[in-house]
Simulated scan of single mutants.
Amino acid sequence: MAYTSTTTHGGINLIARVAEFAAKVKEAYALRAMYNRTYSELQGLTDRELNDIGVRRCDIKDIAHDHVYCA
């Protein structure tokens, strides 16, 4: 009885997976930078300015998250 074994080299597939992973990491860094920028800008506002736009200081984290990741 003869047995055959088939193996595939995943060369191209591996390269595509690494490229996809790198793209996802790049996108995650870009989103995080946007979150940090939004958070910092809102934190930089005075309490009066936040009150004028209807934002409580304790909600800044959630607002920045929703703006970046849920939009």
Results as ranks from 00 to 15, higher is better:
residue 53 I to T: 09
residue 31 L to G: 02
residue 62 D to N: 14
residue 29 Y to T: 11
residue 18 V to G: 02
residue 31 L to R: 14
residue 34 M to H: 04
residue 14 L to V: 10
residue 8 T to P: 00
residue 53 I to M: 11
residue 51 N to R: 15
residue 35 Y to D: 06
residue 60 I to W: 01
residue 4 T to H: 03
residue 43 Q to R: 14
residue 22 A to C: 14
residue 50 L to H: 04
residue 7 T to Q: 08
residue 38 T to R: 10
residue 47 D to A: 10
residue 67 H to A: 04
residue 65 H to S: 06
residue 15 I to C: 04
residue 42 L to T: 10
residue 43 Q to T: 13
residue 32 R to D: 05
residue 21 F to E: 14
residue 51 N to M: 11
residue 39 Y to L: 13
residue 68 V to D: 00
residue 30 A to I: 15
residue 8 T to G: 00
residue 26 K to R: 15
residue 22 A to L: 15
residue 62 D to C: 09
residue 8 T to N: 04
residue 48 R to I: 07
residue 6 T to I: 15
residue 27 E to W: 05
residue 9 H to D: 09
residue 4 T to Q: 11
residue 41 E to G: 03
residue 53 I to W: 04
residue 30 A to H: 08
residue 46 T to A: 01
residue 23 A to N: 12
residue 5 S to I: 13
residue 43 Q to P: 03
residue 47 D to M: 10
residue 71 A to H: 12
residue 8 T to E: 07
residue 12 I to Q: 08
residue 52 D to M: 07
residue 30 A to F: 06
residue 31 L to E: 06
residue 42 L to E: 07
residue 42 L to P: 05
residue 16 A to C: 10
residue 20 E to K: 14
residue 18 V to W: 00
residue 3 Y to R: 13
residue 46 T to Q: 07
residue 60 I to K: 02
residue 65 H to Y: 07
residue 51 N to K: 15
residue 58 C to P: 05
residue 70 C to V: 12
residue 57 R to G: 02
residue 33 A to T: 12
residue 32 R to Q: 09
residue 24 K to P: 02
residue 40 S to H: 07
residue 29 Y to K: 15
residue 63 I to C: 07
residue 45 L to H: 01
residue 59 D to G: 08
residue 64 A to T: 03
residue 41 E to F: 07
residue 11 G to V: 14
residue 45 L to A: 01
residue 20 E to T: 12
residue 55 V to I: 15
residue 14 L to N: 14
residue 58 C to Y: 08
residue 25 V to Q: 11
residue 25 V to R: 12
residue 59 D to W: 01
residue 36 N to W: 01
residue 48 R to A: 06
residue 10 G to I: 01
residue 59 D to R: 06
residue 4 T to Y: 02
residue 61 K to P: 05
residue 4 T to G: 05
residue 46 T to S: 13
residue 63 I to P: 02
residue 54 G to L: 06
residue 50 L to K: 06
residue 44 G to W: 07
residue 40 S to N: 09
residue 21 F to R: 14
residue 44 G to D: 05
residue 48 R to G: 06
residue 30 A to W: 03
residue 69 Y to V: 11
residue 35 Y to Q: 11
residue 48 R to T: 11
residue 69 Y to C: 06
residue 62 D to L: 14
residue 62 D to G: 10
residue 11 G to I: 13
residue 50 L to R: 08
residue 51 N to E: 14
residue 26 K to P: 01
residue 68 V to G: 00
residue 21 F to S: 12
residue 59 D to K: 09
residue 19 A to D: 01
residue 68 V to K: 01
residue 56 R to N: 02
residue 65 H to K: 05
residue 1 M to E: 06
residue 46 T to C: 05
residue 31 L to F: 08
residue 68 V to N: 00
residue 2 A to L: 13
residue 66 D to H: 04
